[in-house]
Design a protein around this nucleic acid. Structure first.
Length: 231
DNA sequence: TACCAGGAGAAAA
DNA sequence: TTTTCTCATGGT
């Protein structure tokens, strides 16, 4: 059974965005500045992992001169795993990185894959073992600059507490709902989704935690948790 | 010490 | 179809 798509009020969404922007300022994402391929690598390494740990792993790949699909595929898997050890789950992620690199090379690299329409690019990524919806959408948005919204665990928590959605929704319906609540040219939507997801990560990791610090939160007056109506 | 962190896939229920 | 388990390092 599929979960019905929630309806997100466009004005409330933009209102929440503005409050987050006022509180945290522009996030200027993606956090590493190494180009599309490095964004793809970072998207895999950050699966269920704090970004500070990912930075260590990225630095170790650079130190081995291995920040390219060809170089990663040329590394023995045990050495690749050792290089990315600080990011956690290193054996699993080594395999996932290799799968992604194989797909990337077979697809003609960035220029070849950039010829795909967004839905096809997304489908292709989701067919790679180890690339789930969040990782795929990170790549589609931040590496390929396509207008898709990235949902993560923070998004559910924050949107539920703000009353933008009910509890119990799933990834695809929520992504579609946010995308349906936006208008305008693709480039503007890319910019909005980029900043919104970055602000959600910032807010979710620093303020809206499982046990949140609502004291100085710009959203506290519209937050069901802060008002004692959730958890 | 225990919890948490920008998930995903496989197995079990 | 949904829930549970596994994978692992590092910061607080």
């Amino acid at each position: 059974m599929t979960t019905p798509q929630p309806r997100i009020d466009r004005r409330r969404l933009h209102g929440a965005f503005q409050r987050l922007l006022d509180q945290h300022g522009p996030q200027d994402w993606w956090p590493s500045k190494g180009g599309p391929f490095e964004i793809m690598v970072g998207a895999v390494l950050t699966q269920n992992t704090a970004w500070t740990n990912v930075e260590k792993a990225l630095a170790r790949l650079h130190a081995a001169d291995a920040m390219s699909a060809e170089a990663i595929l040329a590394l023995p898997e045990a050495e690749l795993a050792e290089r990315i050890r600080p990011s956690g789950y290193f054996n699993i992620k080594a395999d996932r990185l290799r799968q992604l690199c194989r797909w990337y090379v077979d697809g003609g690299g960035f220029d070849g894959l950039a010829r795909l329409e967004t839905p096809e690019l997304r489908r292709e990524l989701l067919s790679v073992k180890g690339i789930g919806p969040e990782t795929a959408d990170d790549i589609v948005l931040y590496a390929f600059h396509r207008p898709v919204f990235v949902v993560d665990a923070y998004t559910f928590r924050i949107f539920e507490r703000m009353g933008l959605i009910d509890t119990g929704h799933r990834y695809e319906p929520l992504r579609a709902a946010v995308e349906s609540a936006t208008r305008g040219p693709a480039a503007e939507r890319v910019g909005f989704f980029n900043e919104l997801h970055a602000l959600i990560v910032r807010h979710g990791s620093r303020v809206c935690r499982p046990k949140p610090d609502c004291g100085n939160c710009a959203l506290r007056r519209m937050c069901a948790y802060n008002l004692g109506r959730l958890d």
